[in-house]
Design a protein around this nucleic acid. Sequence first.
DNA 1: ACAAAAGTGTTTAATTTACACCCATGT
DNA 2: ACATGGGTGTAAATTAAACACTTTTGT
Lengths: 251, 251
Amino acid sequence: MSDNTLSKSNLNPNVSVDCVIFGFDGEKLKILLIDREQVMVGDDGEKVYALPGNLIRNDENLDSAAHRVLNELTGLHDIFLEQFGSFGDPDRLTKKTDLAWLKSIRAQPDARVITVAYYSLVRADQLELHASGFAKDALWHDIDKLPSLGFDHDKIIDSALKELRFKSKYQPLGFELLPEKFTLGQLQKLYEAILNTELDKRNFRRKILKMSFLVPLQEKQIGVPHKPARYYTFDKDMYQNYKSNDFYFTL
Amino acid sequence: MSDNTLSKSNLNPNVSVDCVIFGFDGEKLKILLIDREQVMVGDDGEKVYALPGNLIRNDENLDSAAHRVLNELTGLHDIFLEQFGSFGDPDRLTKKTDLAWLKSIRAQPDARVITVAYYSLVRADQLELHASGFAKDALWHDIDKLPSLGFDHDKIIDSALKELRFKSKYQPLGFELLPEKFTLGQLQKLYEAILNTELDKRNFRRKILKMSFLVPLQEKQIGVPHKPARYYTFDKDMYQNYKSNDFYFTL
DNA sequence: ACAAAAGTGTTTAATTTACACCCATGT
DNA sequence: ACATGGGTGTAAATTAAACACTTTTGT
């Protein structure tokens, strides 16, 4: 904060991070995109959005850079971020509109930049977003109707989605990412949104509850116009244990 | 080749690639390491090895860089390489012996370098190695008795090994990587070496043969002092098909 | 009373596991 | 003849899949 101007010179011109933040609102899977400072309009006149991302600093590691950049652009903090790939085609920053924008914000707008990509999954409806930096706005977009995207961000999102689907089938993903307490119905909806399929309620419950890190709470939903569901939470220690062992599961 | 001197100036000072080449000799899992030009000796007097890796060029993408660098240092070519992670701690190049070595080969030895890591799995006993560039030698090392390593290469190898084990359980990995024809016994030994376990022969065969991309050849082993095994090959098209569908398998 | 999601078991099919002997070849 | 790894089947246990009704609450 205090060395904000100083830090500018400390940016590495060749390495950036980009964050694919998946959001779940209880129903659908979304992605967090930023709207950049100047009006970015593509060849076809459409607005062009981007993933939150920026150059790394020379004195921070990649994970820290991802957290910092995400926070600077969207206000999100303290979320789980996982690196899933790096993208470095020499021409990934060469779209006309992207170049024009880079000229307005970067010391070396023509530099070759490779980007290290991270993803996360959060509650889209419970986190406050505060766009700042060069982000004019930070908004959730439906995953099945994404707008035009700058750079190679469509490719990065494709890749993140593949990773999310793959991991969610073979690891109990989505637990670092859930609110502290949740119902099994919410959990099932989450998996259905990720995998884009419907799951059998009874089979889902049986399988998911076999994982010993899911612990039932006494607390139940209140004020819902149907039988109130029990809340669950998950035991981080048990979960770590589970993760370190080999296992897979099928939903 | 012809623009070798010219290309030097074209190197990006901040981004490198490193290759973790797993080798299988029919028995054990190995890793390919290079021995660098000057004698590299750690604090304890031990020789210090490194993964084949170097800076990328500004005009090539990351995959090409990995193939090029691997070829320049070890002579390997036309192998399957998969990106599995990027490593970028600010202090990853700050060991004394590493710094000394970097000063002898790099224009900007103190530059922050993040590295994009790739892995592969090849036949350790059938490929010719030709060390060149700053590699004095390129040698296979047993995976369970690795020597001292420069930089953060021990961390990179750990990570690669985890990835290899994970992927090999959930995807039919190790097929791009095998010789054109192989016996099921060899395939089983490969999986046993990767997973570091013993597998039941009959169960292994049943499961692996259910994968339609494994095709039996008429050809059999000759000159072996036991019943000659049938050779198999794998159908790349079927395999792609298989990979694009969701699936997992347990050995 | 009704709408809406929670919660709960059983049967059948498919998959996984454990396990032992004969075969073809070179020496 | 013997040593070596190749090749094969089956029974029992486990896991996955399909499927429908009762419960609790708010309106």
